[in-house]
Computed example of a mutant assay.
Amino acid sequence: MTGEVARRALPTRTVESRLIVVARAQRAEDYDAVLDVLVDAGIRSVELTLTTPGTFAHFPRLRERFGDAVDLGIGTVTGTDDLARAIDAGAAYIVTPITSAAFVQQATDAGVPIVPGGLTPTELFASWSAGASAVKVFPAGQVGPGYLKDLRGPFPGIVAVPSGGVDLAGAEAWLAAGAVAVSVGGPLLGDAFSGGDLGALHDRAQAFVEVCTP
């Protein structure tokens, strides 16, 4: 069944880096300084979340400034209108925390990779069989890397990105279990969006890059 559906591949840089940084800030203007550090540390894929006010308005500036160095996705998409806006904005990929075949169809028809979230085998397979580029195992911290090995039994071809509570050791373990990439937020970003030490952020980002780079 999975071989019969249209499926948009994740961006090459994202797949090669095996690491997506989830940026959730208090305001969109705070993205710039943090992205400067992340890009310098070797990060090549960043998911900008719609829970950050002003993300859509600020996105064109971020694409112009960072688009040649990093895949900029848009995440926390929970409605069809926001999905359409993310497509129109030129998101490199779209991430949603929910399971929706309609979302997958909408993004795929527009030629944009999409990663829908889910936790149960039924949810994850529903998205995968609908044509998702990958499925987001969320919240990954509630199950652990062994869960992906179990899923690979009935669904050997499924492409998964764990998200939620993935720290440095977890990133290594999930990738060893067969994840195409890991989605990381707090354990990497720490207090960077609330005045934290950007030098320390650089060190944390480099550590994740070293673990995730094949």
Results as ranks from 00 to 15, higher is better:
1 M>W: 13
5 V>T: 09
6 A>M: 14
8 R>A: 13
9 A>Q: 14
10 L>F: 12
12 T>I: 14
14 T>P: 09
14 T>I: 11
15 V>T: 13
15 V>Q: 03
19 L>G: 11
19 L>H: 02
20 I>N: 06
20 I>H: 06
21 V>A: 09
21 V>G: 04
22 V>Q: 05
22 V>I: 15
22 V>R: 00
24 R>T: 05
24 R>F: 03
25 A>D: 01
26 Q>K: 12
27 R>L: 09
27 R>Q: 15
28 A>W: 13
30 D>N: 14
32 D>I: 11
34 V>M: 00
35 L>W: 04
38 L>D: 00
39 V>T: 15
40 D>Q: 12
42 G>Q: 02
43 I>F: 03
44 R>H: 09
48 L>F: 08
48 L>R: 03
58 H>G: 06
63 R>G: 07
66 F>Y: 15
67 G>I: 02
69 A>G: 05
71 D>E: 10
74 I>R: 01
75 G>K: 03
79 G>F: 03
81 D>E: 14
81 D>A: 15
82 D>R: 10
83 L>T: 07
84 A>W: 08
85 R>K: 15
85 R>L: 13
88 D>S: 14
88 D>M: 08
89 A>R: 10
90 G>S: 09
91 A>K: 05
93 Y>G: 00
94 I>D: 02
95 V>W: 01
96 T>H: 07
98 I>C: 13
99 T>Y: 05
99 T>M: 08
103 F>V: 03
104 V>P: 00
108 T>R: 12
109 D>N: 12
109 D>C: 13
112 V>M: 08
112 V>L: 10
114 I>S: 13
119 L>C: 12
122 T>N: 12
124 L>F: 04
125 F>G: 09
126 A>Q: 15
128 W>N: 07
131 G>S: 12
135 V>F: 04
140 A>L: 12
140 A>I: 11
143 V>D: 13
144 G>A: 02
146 G>V: 08
147 Y>F: 14
147 Y>N: 04
147 Y>Q: 02
150 D>C: 08
152 R>M: 08
155 F>Q: 03
156 P>M: 00
163 S>R: 04
163 S>K: 11
164 G>P: 04
165 G>H: 03
166 V>G: 09
167 D>P: 08
169 A>C: 10
170 G>C: 11
172 E>S: 15
173 A>K: 10
176 A>V: 12
176 A>N: 08
176 A>R: 13
181 A>W: 09
182 V>Y: 06
183 S>K: 04
187 P>G: 01
190 G>Q: 05
192 A>C: 06
193 F>R: 01
194 S>W: 06
203 D>C: 00
204 R>Q: 07
209 V>Y: 05
209 V>D: 05
211 V>N: 10
212 C>W: 01
212 C>I: 00
212 C>M: 05
213 T>F: 05
